[in-house]
Structures are given as structure tokens and as C-alpha cells.
């Protein structure tokens, strides 16, 4: 799992690569910690290379979403692969996280 964060002013461009599963969910949490400090008004995540997410991963997205929502900022996930999108749909996470 790789998390690549590029900052453009108050906007964070994030690229996610690989699998998020039980073995690396904690690491993923650490990797996205810089996004939780409130510095960004918009977080744009490119999920084109994200292969899989477990329910642990969903929790991380949810924490991020709640953190972002609490300060009136925006979180957007893009280019999600269909079988990953399906996980977000089934669990209803598509309702609370913006997936484009």
C-alpha cells in the first residue's frame, strides 16, 4: 500500500496504490494522518490504482470523512475500480463519502 500526497496550497492531491487489508490498515492510518491536521480544505484522492479495501480500510475512510466534514472541508474519491466501488456501495459508504 502506497499513499502519495501532493499539496497544492490548501488542496491535497492524494494517490492510493495497492491493497488496504488487515495487515497494513494501521500503516494506512499513519500514512493519511497528515490529512487529519486540518490544513487542507479539499482532499482529492485518486483511487485508480487501489486494488482492494477491507472493512478496516473503510473505517479509515470514514474517520477521514468525519474529520473533513467536522471542519467544513471536502473529501473526494475518484477513479475507483468497479469491485472496490462495489464495497463502498454495499456498505452504504457511497452515501456518506463523495465518490466521483
Amino acid at each position: 500500500m502506497n499513499v502519495i500526497i501532493n499539496e497544492e496550497g490548501e488542496k491535497a492531491l492524494v494517490k492510493l496504490e495497492g491493497r488496504i487489508d488487515t495487515t497494513n490498515a494501521d500503516q494506512f492510518m499513519k500514512d493519511i494522518t497528515p490529512l487529519l491536521n486540518g490544513a487542507h480544505t479539499e482532499i482529492d484522492m485518486d483511487c485508480a490504482d487501489m486494488e482492494y479495501t477491507s472493512s478496516q480500510g473503510l473505517r479509515m475512510f470514514l474517520m477521514l470523512q468525519k474529520n473533513v466534514a467536522s471542519r467544513g472541508a471536502k473529501l473526494v474519491l475518484r477513479n475507483m475500480r468497479p469491485h472496490v466501488k462495489e464495497v463502498f456501495d454495499i456498505t452504504g459508504f457511497s452515501h456518506i463519502i463523495t465518490i466521483l
Partner: peptide, 9 residues
């Protein structure tokens, strides 16, 4: 209808 996983909101 998927609704949403429980325990979140």
C-alpha cells in the same frame, strides 16, 4: 437497499 453499515451515524 444498502442503507448504511450500523454504528456510524
Amino acid at each position: 437497499r444498502p442503507n448504511l453499515a450500523a454504528g456510524l451515524f
